[in-house]
Design a protein around this nucleic acid. Structure first.
Lengths: 179, 179
DNA sequence: CGCTCATGTATCTGCCAGATACATTCTGTC
DNA sequence: GACAGAATGTATCTGGCAGATACATGAGCG
């Protein structure tokens, strides 16, 4: 069976913060849970239509080309139900970088080491963003603050571990002939 | 544009180890790079057909219902090219667990903490498997050994960081009213 | 006046996971 | 020796999802 659609629940959750347009949802998702969740318009608009058809979201016109979406009581109940169900697949399924590291012996000498170096630099930049975000949230007393902090700290933990792994792997790759 | 198909390169890479059938490929992938890569038959068989049509893989009948696939020189060249290109999306896009942690305020009390606990237990079990795998690879002198080790150590680094995060988050969630 | 950028809605392509279906061959058990 | 079930093997279908693209409007700026 195809896995349960998760876009619906990300939308329901974001609408507990405040009513929004489709475009606003996309912005809000990128701004708050963007470090571990992504939505594209190709998912959002069909999901909003489906949620409205099920009565989990209500839609109110704002202007000629603009609609505001609001979560209903049934929507809240459905969100609460889903929040208690175990995540379907916790594992990250594919890492293109690790695939390249695994087959590095067949690459141009030094090529994969360059990719790992770039990966480390990306993580270092992400680490800075996370640090700023963490300070920002910690100094703000919103009701979702502690949970938001927990998700950011997950990002920090993963990024820190990834930076350490990159350094170690670079030593391995360069030691054995600059691969 | 839709992202470049990566299944092709996982297949090409695995066929550098030895020639295999479609089924054998699936087994080999699960057994060696399964901790960070997944392939389903729905991807494998079409990919093998496409690779053969492009001359990157050659196919030889083994029995009436069995075919062996072999990487060609052009296949090796194409693999080498790809190994040098930067990974298209390094970030893990969606974490259902983090989404649930973020919206935990709207769940049944204690429900999300239970999910985090289950997540930690999964990671602890994975950590044991990784440890065994690491010892196994370290004691074996295959040419791909060091690279294989690097990918396993990535798994260990992530799992260790995840376990620490789970413990910390459980303290947060239970402290504020068993959510 | 034209340029760019933000806001806003919407569709299309292609990758991919998981489920399913079916045929054959090996292995253990009674 | 017969039979069940697991392993081997090929193949298709459904549906979620990312990224690209298209199009329209209004605001700020040179």
């Amino acid at each position: 069976m195809a896995k349960e659609a998760t876009t619906r629940y990300a939308v329901l959750g974001m609408l507990t913060l405040e009513p929004m347009t489709g475009y606003g949802l996309r912005e809000a998702i990128a701004g708050t849970i963007g470090h571990f969740w992504h939505e594209s318009f190709g998912q959002l608009y069909p999901a909003l239509r489906a949620l409205e058809a099920e009565g989990l979201v209500s839609t109110h016109p704002l202007g000629p080309r603009s609609r505001e979406h609001r979560i209903t009581d049934r929507g809240r109940a459905e969100l609460r139900r889903w929040l208690g169900t175990p995540p379907s697949s916790a594992a990250a399924h594919r890492s293109e970088l690790l695939l390249k590291v695994f087959f590095a012996r067949h690459a141009e000498p030094g090529a994969v080491a360059g990719l790992v170096r770039a990966h480390r630099d990306t993580l270092v930049a992400a680490r800075e963003r996370y640090g700023g975000l963490e300070r920002e949230i910690a100094s703000d007393a919103s009701p979702d603050g502690p949970h938001w902090l927990a998700t950011v700290r997950h990002g920090i933990a993963m990024v820190d571990a990834g930076i350490a792994w990159s350094e170690e792997t670079l030593r391995t790759l360069t030691a054995e002939g600059a691969r």
